[in-house]
Design a protein around this nucleic acid. Structure first.
Lengths: 343, 343
DNA sequence: GCGCTTTCAGAAAGCGCTTTCAGGGGTGCT
DNA sequence: AGCACCCCTGAAAGCGCTTTCTGAAAGCGC
């Protein structure tokens, strides 16, 4: 891409009648006679010079752009986390580039590889890993040398199999707490809108919910658990399927808020009222759910904080021999989408 | 960042007992004796070699990562557009990195500068420009040499002052159409939740709305137009302010859906019903508004398509002498947040 | 079998920058 | 005035890769 050749440091140096070394020093704020510095700066300005980041990086200068990889920028869950990352990155004078894999593991590896190739100072992985262990291994293979090379990696809510510093939402405890809260409201017949199987996010949340129910002697029939993608439409479909089977539950627990939104839409389309006919609860507490009608009962995760912590982790060196893990969130927030039963 | 030195092409070459040139060719799929190629590939695999992207770029290889810059990844408006960009980028085997300026013009320039420094093949700018012409000029100064160097730039819904290929939403026409639709519903007393003044998005939408009203002989008192940030909380505040002044309007037009969501929340918090007490309309048709209760009346923009078109533009060379402009969207979608008046 | 073209590996020249290393000219001291 | 020292500039090396260019070996026709 150089139809017109790029302006180089040498051009600037020549224009300012100094050596490239001096030009470099002037541009980088090192000690240089003010007069020369001014000449260099003026020349650089006039020529609209931008240093070639590649040359600079190759010559050993540090990069100040960290990469964040998520599954779907379009999902408020991820964008909220990304927002947190960017906040603390900004405080530390770092730029952030966000990549979205759209749940394509190949693309995820490609992004990590790219970030690694660019010697980004840090890579943040958000969202659960992929089912196929092959990909997790490919990722691991890409990450390992990156870490060895001094790269920083932190994960948010990522499959445990990845042995990196992580900030993990309290999935299991949160789901258990939700089960308890729902039980307290008087519900006894539940359905669950689950996500792709084999994601730890799913197994943890579902497991926590089911175990707590079991502890209270309340069964969760397999027929009442339906899997679907972690999207609004996934929730809609799953709910529709449940409805088609003849819904027996009084309360539906969606493993993510986004799915819960889809579920509410499906319920509405079937002429059912939330929470009068069916109670709906979600998980994540993405910002929008407060503004729904009815506002959604959910397990709150401090999403922005998740991102902030991850960025902070990546910023501070892990001096210990073990990976660091921070656990956050998990409080149940009862809103109007869940009704008291048999009150 | 190289505590342990990186594996270089030379290491691979040595391990495979060939010259670096041959190793490079083998890795890049050029004609090499199969036997040698296998040896190189094996060595590269064993050493977990990743080519240094900087060295590669410096040596002339093309980059395959385009950058898109938006104001706020957290805003569904932008993430939907970004989604579209990524879709067509993916089809063309490009990776995309998304940057969020959080409406800080300095950061925007920094990102452009970075992308330019990295010789990204394309830069996409989304969202209106900044009020201060100083920044627009700084941006222009950064963009000009980038374009001269063969870089591709396309903008989405960007301030016209930037002379680059653009895809523009039909802001004025859409707002006018909305005015007509609202008039048709019988409303005569309006309030507008506007955004930061001097954004063309604001002047166009507000202008289109006001002009259409004026054409019908309906006034829009200055007191009924309140400016606030283009955010949910901005909408909430603006609506609250309107309420505090004693709302006389029967219909509130928010210049973006996100603001409309905030406005609905404020109305609800004040014990008012949408649309029974006040009708609310938005602009953009972000995906979530369909799932609100009531679903929001709005001016539909094919957000994803905006991103797709922009990416396509950036991908095809502009052979003409003038910048290309594509205009999209602007259809009014009446949903349940607006009521018929005096029916 | 000789001289021709063709194929493919290796040597080497950069890409644009940072950074050591030397050297030159002041300055302050004796 | 002479010496030591410091500061600043320029020359040059080199970051890791791609890509000519060169040369050797192999394949072909006569």
């Amino acid at each position: 891409m150089q139809p017109r050749p790029h302006v180089t440091l040498e051009d600037v140096a020549r224009a300012a009648d100094v050596s490239p070394a001096t030009a470099s020093r002037a541009l980088n704020g090192m000690r240089v006679t003010p007069q020369l510095r001014d000449r260099v700066l003026a020349a650089a300005g006039k020529l609209a010079y931008t240093p070639n980041a590649h040359a600079r990086a190759l010559a050993g200068a540090a990069h100040r752009t960290v990469g964040v990889i998520c599954h779907d920028v379009t999902d408020p869950y991820f964008s909220a986390i990304a927002g947190g990352v960017m906040r603390v990155a900004g405080e530390n004078d770092l730029l952030v580039m966000l990549a979205s894999t759209f749940r394509d593991p190949e693309r995820e590896v490609a992004y990590v590889s790219m970030l690694r190739a660019e010697r980004a100072p840090a890579i943040l992985l958000t969202g659960s890993g992929f089912e196929d262990p092959r990909w997790e291994r490919a990722l691991e293979a890409e990450l390992r040398p990156y870490l060895d090379g001094g790269g920083r990696v932190a994960a948010v809510s990522r499959h445990r199999s990845l042995k990196v510093d992580s900030v993990l939402p309290e999935n299991r405890a949160g789901a258990a707490a939700m089960a308890r809260a729902l039980l307290d409201l008087g519900h006894r017949r539940f359905a669950v809108l689950a996500g792709p199987p084999a994601l730890t996010t799913v197994t943890d949340r579902l497991g926590g919910f089911r175990d707590e129910l079991a502890g209270a002697g309340v069964p969760l029939p397999a027929a009442n658990v339906v899997a679907a993608p972690f999207t609004r439409d996934g929730g809609y479909q799953a709910m529709t399927e449940l409805l088609a089977r003849g819904l027996t539950a009084t309360c539906v627990f969606a493993l993510t808020d986004v799915m819960a939104i889809g579920a509410c839409a499906a319920l509405r389309d079937h002429g059912l009222s939330v929470p009068d006919d069916v109670s709906v609860a979600g998980f994540d507490d993405i910002p929008i759910v407060r503004d729904l009608t009815p506002p959604l009962t959910t397990v709150a995760l401090p999403l922005q904080q998740l991102g902030e912590e991850a960025m902070r982790m990546a910023l501070t060196e892990n001096t210990g021999r073990r990976r660091r893990v921070v656990r956050l969130g998990g409080e149940v927030v009862i809103r109007a989408s869940t009704a008291k039963l048999g009150g």
